[in-house]
Amino acid sequence: MRRFLVRRFVFLLITLWLVSILVFALSRASGDPRLLYVDPYTTQQDFAAMGRQMGLDRPLAVQYLMWVGRVLRGDLGRSLREARPVREAILERVPTTFQLAGLGWLFIMLSGIPLGVLAAVKRGTTIDYIARMLVTCGQSLPQFWLGIVLILLFSVTLGWLPSGRKEGGPSHYVLPLLVIGPFTAAGTLRLVRAAMIQALDSEYIKFARAKGVRPSIVVWKHALRNAIITPLTYSALILAHLLTGTVLVETVFAWPGLGRLAIIAVNQNDFPLLTGIVLFFATIFLVINFVVDIVYAYVDPRIRYM
């Protein structure tokens, strides 16, 4: 276990390092970083002074290290359009995004797992086939389009639900959740179903049945416990996926979160802001991946030796 932990941790660090190099290289490839800050009143001397201040006269490797040092201390630079530190702009919007992603995750788990179990138990029946068709439909619905259609139907035509914008009130969450749901819930359903089918066909389930254990306990305790490992791993990845996926949902519903901020940054060419958000998301994404692997290995000892 220790060896696995260390190995996995080293991999996490290497990946983070690669991401940082990628972001740094791209920020340099996009042109002289000073140009982002230049206005009509900047003189030649100011320009040169900015270069020295930013360390542009030093070798690239040194510049990279300086940049990493700043990032590690939590200094992500200043946003160009918002005229304030990137960190401030990000932290301000973190709760909104996490709320949405967290609720979406809950919604997905509460719909995907029971439906997956149901489909597996009722294998080959109408319920199973409906579930399977829903899976394929759910996975092929473009989220951004689904959001627009839902807004068109429920907000514009029927006027039942607000078209997003978090202003309080639970009704604002309904449409965004309906958009986040189908795609990933479908994936969860598919995984749970496959794992449950495998579990239900195994010897210990036959034994439990033969022993006279109640069917509900066989399904929900014996089988699900073994079948849940893969979906559980997947579920944390869903959370990671949801966090970056909020870029879409927040754009469609004008939700004041990090994802929308990222798109605003793209549209306004606000490079420091965008790289800040990407570094933030990527770190969370990778750390979640790391934690999942560890939990996975803890729950299922077979993994450790792979």
């Binding site: 990628l22 996009s30 990222a262 990407v278 990527a282």
Partner: peptide, 23 residues
């Protein structure tokens, strides 16, 4: 295979945004 791992763990959407704003 570690290269594959790295690629499969990166959030494509965000990386693409950075590339687009750079190039």
């Amino acid at each position: 295979m570690r290269g594959v791992d790295v690629i499969l763990t990166l959030p494509l959407l965000l990386v693409a945004l950075v590339f687009v704003i750079a190039f």
